[in-house]
Structure formats: structure tokens, C-alpha cells
């Protein structure tokens, strides 16, 4: 659990983070979203003490981080940044092994861990371990960057626009990978982005920042339904709000018994997918099936439309 208490940061005379307080529960994926210059990156960088706060404090699992020497703190916290920051003179394996080496793990353990992580990120160890970063594609570099951040199995992972440099298709894959990996490892993640789509797609909790202030810190649903300020509403894009709301709702609670024509949707899809599918194929309802291919029932267009309305 991360507790941020009345945190402020001044650079010279300008305030970049203004009295921010928030609590991130253990195992959650919290997204800090805001425009550039909103102070979101500075807030993130104060969590691993790359920036020292001017006032306020941060507790990780109840311990004040200002009492931990910065480099020791950072070795316990994963850190992945935009453009990945891989060390160009070290191979993929050596890059991933950075923190384990700093922590003094023995060679066999490091080597096993590198293999495990490459495997986790679907990179063939034999093929990639001895390559240099310049020999990888952008998506591969990004995966290695995250693998490096996770190398010492940190309980907390900080990510600064980790997908910023990727093209849309690879980005969607990377986001999916991240969610799965987080669910599997139970790592607490704090991720900074300027992309509200990404925030809603990934976050358990979303913190919206603007001009150094924390405007709203809530679940994605609450943010979409009840934006705290006009600015938060703008960030969501007023024309897209019903669709964002639908995208946050899984199909399962809305399945009703009955038949429907045409191709079936997977049960893991969202109401938004159902709406799109129904509208595009001109159907009033679409069938839903589970992972094994067994039909569970159908979701109607009417249900989807009803659920798109703002809850009162």
C-alpha cells in the first residue's frame, strides 16, 4: 500500500505538485492521467525518490520512504519509462539482470530469472538473451524494459508513459500483457499516461491531475459517470462517455437466455463490444459463448443501450 500525504513539490518558485494526497491499495493498478506539465511525472518520480518532495511524505507499507537510502529504495521498486531507457551497451540478458546484480544475487539465480522473464514476455531466451537493444524492434525493446523493471520481483512497479513510443496495434498488445502479468504477479503498479483511453482501459483507480493539483481520484466508473470538474469531463471527451461507460461493463451480468443469429461474442468482452457488434451487423441481439465455445445465451441491443445511460 502506498500512502501519499500532502505532497508538494516546488522547482524554484513554480509549484509542480500541489498538496496531493492519495492512497493506492496493495495489488492495485493506479493510473495517473493528465496533460503534459500537469505534474504527474514528478508525482511518480517522488515515489522512488528520483525527485525529493518539498513537503509532505510518502509511506510504502507504512514505512516513510525518506528514511530509506534512495538507491536501496529504488532497487525494491521497478521502474519503466517511455523509450524504455535500456542500456545500449548491454545485452538483453544483462539489461534484465541489472537490479538482481546490484542486489548481489548469485549467477545461477540471475540466469534463471532472466530466462523466466523472457519467457513471461514471450521472447525466446536462446534467441534474444545475447542481442543488443539496437537489434530489437520497438515492441520488443518495450517488453525488455518492463521485464527489467520486474527482474527483482518488486512489490511495486512505477511506469512513466511505458507505451508512449509504440504504434497502436503493438500498444494494445502491450497493455493486455501488462494486465495479465499484473494479475498473475499481484504487483502494485502506478502508471503515468496522458491517454485517458489507456487509463480507463488499464486502471483500477485513476488519478486525474491538472496544473499541479489532483482533481479526482476514483474508480474508472465514477470518473466516467461523475467527473469532478469540467476539465475531467473534457479529458474524457463528451461524445464518447456512453461508450467509455459500456467498455467498463463486462457482459456476464447482462446475459439473458435465448437465441440470437450470427457470430458469438466471447464472455470476456464488454458491453461496448456487444453494442458495436450488434450495430454493425444489424442484429437486435448477439449470442455469447464461454471460452470452451459453449453458448451461454444472448445480449440484446436494448440492454446495451440502457446500460449506456448515465446512472442516476
Amino acid at each position: 500500500m502506498i500512502e501519499i500525504e500532502h505532497l508538494s513539490k516546488f522547482f524554484d518558485e513554480t509549484c509542480v505538485v500541489d498538496d496531493v494526497s492519495m492512497t493506492i491499495p496493495g495489488g492495485a493498478l493506479a493510473v495517473i492521467v493528465g496533460t503534459s506539465g500537469s505534474g504527474k511525472t514528478t508525482l511518480l518520480r517522488m515515489i522512488n525518490r528520483l525527485v525529493e518532495p518539498s513537503s509532505g511524505r510518502i509511506l510504502i507499507d507504512g514505512k516513510d520512504i525518506s528514511a530509506i537510502p534512495p538507491h536501496e529504495l529504488r532497487r525494491q521498486i521497478g521502474y519503466a519509462i517511455q523509450g524504455h531507457g535500456l542500456f545500449p551497451h548491454r545485452t538483453v540478458g544483462q539489461n534484465i539482470a541489472t537490479v538482481p546484480h546490484l542486489l548481489g544475487w548469485d549467477a545461477a539465480k540471475v540466469s534463471a530469472r532472466v530466462e523466466e522473464l523472457l519467457d513471461l514476455f514471450q521472447l525466446d531466451a536462446a534467441e534474444f538473451r545475447d542481442r543488443y537493444p539496437s537489434q530489437l524492434s520497438g515492441g520488443q525493446q518495450q517488453r525488455v524494459g518492463v521485464a527489467r523493471a520486474l527482474a527483482a520481483a518488486p512489490k511495486l512497479l512505477l511506469m512513466d508513459e511505458p507505451f508512449g513510443a509504440l504504434d497502436p496495434i503493438i500498444r494494445a498488445r502491450a497493455q493486455e500483457d501488462l494486465r495479465q502479468i499484473q494479475q498473475r504477479l499481484g504487483t502494485t503498479i502506478v502508471l503515468v499516461t496522458h491517454d485517458m483511453n489507456e487509463a480507463i482501459h488499464l486502471g483500477d483507480r485513476i488519478a486525474v491531475m491538472d496544473r499541479a493539483k489532483l482533481l479526482q481520484y476514483d474508480t474508472p466508473q465514477e470518473i466516467v459517470i461523475r467527473p469532478a470538474t469540467e476539465f475531467v469531463g473534457e479529458l474524457l471527451g463528451s461524445g464518447e462517455r456512453p461508450f467509455r461507460l459500456l467498455s467498463l461493463q463486462p457482459l456476464r451480468p447482462y446475459i439473458e437466455p435465448g437465441e440470437a443469429p450470427g457470430a458469438a461474442l466471447d464472455v470476456d468482452a464488454s458491453l461496448r463490444d456487444a453494442l458495436e457488434e450488434a450495430l454493425w451487423s444489424g442484429r437486435a441481439a448477439v449470442p455469447v459463448r464461454d471460452g470452451a465455445g459453449k453458448t451461454l445465451g444472448r445480449v440484446t441491443l436494448a440492454t446495451a443501450i440502457r446500460q449506456a445511460a448515465r446512472p442516476q
Binding site: F11, D12, T41, L50, V51, E52
Partner: peptide
Amino acid sequence: MTDNSTPLS
């Protein structure tokens, strides 16, 4: 971004 956190005193 560089770390400007060194005290200016």
C-alpha cells in the same frame, strides 16, 4: 527532465 531537487541555498 533533470533533477532540480538540489537545494538552492
